[in-house]
Simulated assay, not measured.
Amino acid sequence: MITVPRWLMLVLAALFSAYHVVLGITSLDIPDNPWPAVVALVLYAVATVLSLWPVRRMRMPDWLAAFDLAVSIAMPLLVTGQLDASADNGYATWYVAAVGTLMTITAARRQLVAAWLGVASLAVQTVVWAGVPALGTLGVVGSIVWVAIAHMLTVALATAAREARRYAQAEREAAAWQAAQDAHLFEGRMRLAQTNRIAAPMLRRIADRGGVLTEAQRRECRMLEAAIRDEIRGRMLLTDVVRAEVQHARERGVLVTLLDEGGIDDLDEATRDRVLSRLAEAIAKSRADRIIARTAAEGSPVAVTVVGLVVPGDEGVDTADTEDAEVELWLEIPRRI
């Protein structure tokens, strides 16, 4: 797509506006009194410079749009007050094209209401001063057409820009979705491989023995089941050190539960290693009957919460009522040091 530099558009608009000033200066001998026309020229020059001054914001400020509208109303009154409506005034009616140009610039800078009010006031003043036929002979219709074209182009460009932003956002969301799907697929394959590595030897032994296992082998199967559950529910909470300490805890008869709900996915590797080292240390030092490690919610200053419970009585941990348990360990591992 071919694009026109913004500075080139500003230069062309400035030259076109300057042309009206030149016409106004060369026709100062036609009005009865040239000074009102001089004032109109100064007002037009100031309004044009302010409107074309390069700024980052495309939309014209409201105060500048109001000033341009006031200038577009004042110029015809100043100039025509010194002209004869029935005579051929030549280039002395330069204000018509000047108002059209100024209002076109105003419309291009997204102040459409002010632009239409400006050309509407020009049309009304022209009809009052010289009659309806003057709308065509003085070029008022052309000024209205310029503003209409600027209006259509402004709306079209704004719509195109809005659609471009929408498509760009959709593209980013699609890319993020695809990346998430690829990550889930990769993680699923990795978890499957990890599960297969852990469970395959025991499954082969179970098949070889026809399902008849000793108590020690049943206990080992339960340990493997818990390890596989950790791989599924623990996700980012697992490192080799954490796995080892969880295994040691379970060998002591501790019921360990790891729950990763996505609260530490945004941590960098160094921070995550620090957090999980604290988790492994807490599991190793705890003498609780049950340990629960859970990631905190996103945005929380806490990364992982670790709770250790001591179950009273002689009941097994698996069947004991945890409502009567006492807290042996309560640890909140922060995200940042």
Rank of each mutant, 00 (worst) to 15 (best):
Y91K: 06
E245C: 07
Q247Y: 12
A114H: 10
V310L: 11
R162K: 15
E163N: 15
V99S: 01
E332C: 07
T295E: 06
A296H: 04
A47R: 02
D314H: 10
A193G: 15
R290F: 04
G136F: 15
L279P: 07
L192G: 15
A288H: 03
V55D: 11
Q111C: 09
L157F: 13
R165H: 14
I25M: 11
L329E: 07
T305S: 11
V317Y: 02
V141C: 06
G131P: 01
A85G: 01
I198Y: 11
R272Y: 08
P334F: 08
A85I: 00
L69Q: 01
A296Q: 04
T295I: 09
A130F: 05
T93H: 10
S72Q: 01
V49R: 04
T319G: 08
A193D: 15
Y167Q: 13
V317Q: 04
D29S: 13
L28P: 06
R287F: 10
A216N: 10
E171C: 09
A200H: 11
I283A: 02
A270P: 01
Q169Y: 14
V132D: 05
A199N: 05
P76D: 10
H20K: 03
A115T: 02
V99N: 03
E261Q: 12
V304N: 03
T239E: 09
T3R: 13
D88C: 04
A70G: 06
Y95M: 09
M223T: 07
G142D: 11
A168G: 15
I206D: 11
N196H: 12
A249M: 06
S17R: 03
A284P: 05
F67C: 05
I2A: 13
R233Y: 13
L153M: 15
A45P: 04
W53M: 02
S286W: 02
T3K: 10
A107D: 00
L78T: 04
T26Q: 14
R172A: 15
A179Q: 12
V46M: 00
V96H: 00
V327D: 05
A123C: 00
A65K: 04
A303P: 03
I232P: 06
P201A: 08
L77W: 08
T214M: 03
V306D: 05
T126L: 01
D240S: 08
E298A: 11
R172V: 07
K285R: 15
E231I: 14
A170T: 08
E173V: 11
G100S: 04
A70D: 03
T80S: 13
R335M: 08
G210E: 07
M103T: 09
A297W: 10
M202E: 05
A66R: 11
A176D: 14
E245G: 00
I232D: 08
V141Y: 12
G253H: 09
I2S: 14
V307R: 10
L15Q: 03
K285W: 10
G81R: 09
I264D: 01
D208M: 03
A284S: 07
V302L: 06
D324I: 12
S72C: 14
T154C: 13
I264S: 05
Y167F: 12
R162D: 15
T319K: 08
L69V: 05
T93F: 10
H248D: 13
A216M: 10
R209I: 10
T195S: 15
R57Y: 11
T257S: 11
